[in-house]
Write a protein that binds this DNA or RNA. Sequence first.
DNA 1: ATGAAAGCGCTAACAT
DNA 2: ATGTTAGCGCTTTCAT
Lengths: 371, 371
Amino acid sequence: MNDSSKKFSKATIIDIAKVAGVSYSTVSRVANNFAYVRPSTRARVLAAMEQHGYVANPHARSLHRGKSGIIGLLVHTLSTEYIGEIVRGVEDEIAQYEYDLMLYTTHRHQGKETQHVSTITRGFADGLLLVVPMGRENYLDALRESNFPHVIVDEGEADYKSPSVGITNRKGIYDATRYLLGLGHRRIGFISDKMKVNTAVDRLKGYKDALAEFGVEYDPALVLEDDFVRPQPRIITETLLRVGSPPTAILINNDPIAFRVMEILRHEHGLRVPEDISVVGFDDISMASLVYPRLTTVRHPLYEMGQAAARLLMERIDDPDLPPQHIQLETELVVRDSCHDLHQAMEMAESDIVKPIERRNGREPSSPRKR
Amino acid sequence: MNDSSKKFSKATIIDIAKVAGVSYSTVSRVANNFAYVRPSTRARVLAAMEQHGYVANPHARSLHRGKSGIIGLLVHTLSTEYIGEIVRGVEDEIAQYEYDLMLYTTHRHQGKETQHVSTITRGFADGLLLVVPMGRENYLDALRESNFPHVIVDEGEADYKSPSVGITNRKGIYDATRYLLGLGHRRIGFISDKMKVNTAVDRLKGYKDALAEFGVEYDPALVLEDDFVRPQPRIITETLLRVGSPPTAILINNDPIAFRVMEILRHEHGLRVPEDISVVGFDDISMASLVYPRLTTVRHPLYEMGQAAARLLMERIDDPDLPPQHIQLETELVVRDSCHDLHQAMEMAESDIVKPIERRNGREPSSPRKR
DNA sequence: ATGAAAGCGCTAACAT
DNA sequence: ATGTTAGCGCTTTCAT
């Protein structure tokens, strides 16, 4: 409004109309590529637009059209590859529809703010993507009531009231658990997100199913709930190692936490992975194949999930009355080097003087220089 | 505009005015918390707003005010912790000013599109943050010409025409190189981003300065330029190992690439880090302390950089005529376990039968199970 | 093929 | 303390 801000205020449709010597509705026609504009007129308008670097004010346009070409994305944080990959999928998909992305981080809009998020988004964006595993009930209801186009990303099987995209969580963990059981492991630690999170429930089921199938009794002492937003890998690890008959393998429902557990196992407990203890992660982020030992994990198709969610949202923006749909993508067990075959280990032990238990503190990490 | 979309179109200021039995300017006054509204009237309006879940249409508001409360963020990709941390800093900072974030990914708006980005952003957002190390000349000029508030994030020392935030790149690498030299290394590989990127130039300078200080001759064969957008760690590594007198240490200007190089060194060349070859990274992302061996690297204050950039931008939105300013944040060498002390190694070798050269393929990674 | 004019929802003078 | 009104910049009938 003040003078200095005028400096970068763009030419309006009226300015262009004046320069081109036409009415501003004609400029609008040219800008929107409508038919029935005489080629010579069009050229003149185009020239004027070019000259002044004209571009339509998106707010005015949105105001009139009643839609903005923007979709909102609600996430907890951006600092993880997990979310980065999802956003990449979303971005690539909506680019085809010429949509743009508005970012909302939930930790800002806390408490009563959480409700505002949906309200803010409503009216500003044409649709909303939610990557928020919990604490969303209040505004989810509001979104459904007002029939505002939205899609939940990475949803479990519990709640299909809203359209959503997810993965085969149960099967993913089922496969991983079976794999460990197949290697001879019977005491398998399970580090899970809070059971408030739907996907965590599904995954625990996969764990139990596999155990049952192998006739292994389910031991609650081996199942630890952590808050994946603020994980406590040290506490979790120590708790698990202190269990009466400690686990020979740990299934951790999140790669980054698995990395931290491995680090703790190695540097604070002198345990080797996989020789002394096996580790399996979940997500298969890029680091999984770069750590040492390379992490065996369950691939989570994050990019594809983002794409699918965006596509679903586009459909619902077109027709908000579509019945809620849930898309489920396939996981895949990726076997790398972080698990030990106990059968093989047995044979070794028989022809070996070193017993497994003695190995534990046998080898310190080389060159333990301080930070 | 069609019927179904009406379903979630919110009540307007006029609807509320009717319900509350006042004029809509009064509603506006209440919505904007103006004085001089009789408490009873205010209460009535508030009730009506509550009842209908009223929230002002942001486009109408922006249109009128001439500003939107939005800042644009232009990044290449979101899939890295690097960018995630920056965005987190930005987010936290702008939240205090009640600004929101609009995301633009450059790989979408390529070629002539790149120009559109600035034009789109102009008029829609009140300011723009750029995390784009290269290929931005065209629109940067346009931004400066129109005096549109913008800040370049992670800028080197070459270009202070635009306001920017960066780090002590030269010193960061200078410290790291000195550290390696201090450990006795004389052949130090240097893997850098393209020299088109300003920061890469600064860093190379730091490398050369340290070398000169130790009287070590600069060998161009040890300096490899890679494209950090599409890195080729395998090629780089092999090239470096094939140099006549190969490096005993490698300085890699990016942690994720350092992780990949370490993996390649280990699994494809049977080399141990740090015993056979030392590695230093740059950025100190969270994984640096979780890999094995823990990575010695240069800390890049990403979060703080995001904050500083956002703060600078806020200032410039307030007063676009401020002279361009450059903020430089401090780096810090973080010593962990990925570097070997050659002096120490010498002593060892003398009292050891195993010569360094023989060690090279001496130890395969344990349990080399296939993926 | 083009111009005139209404209106999208809101804010901010200007009245009263 | 509240109502009236003129835009903000654009799209879109409706005329011509």
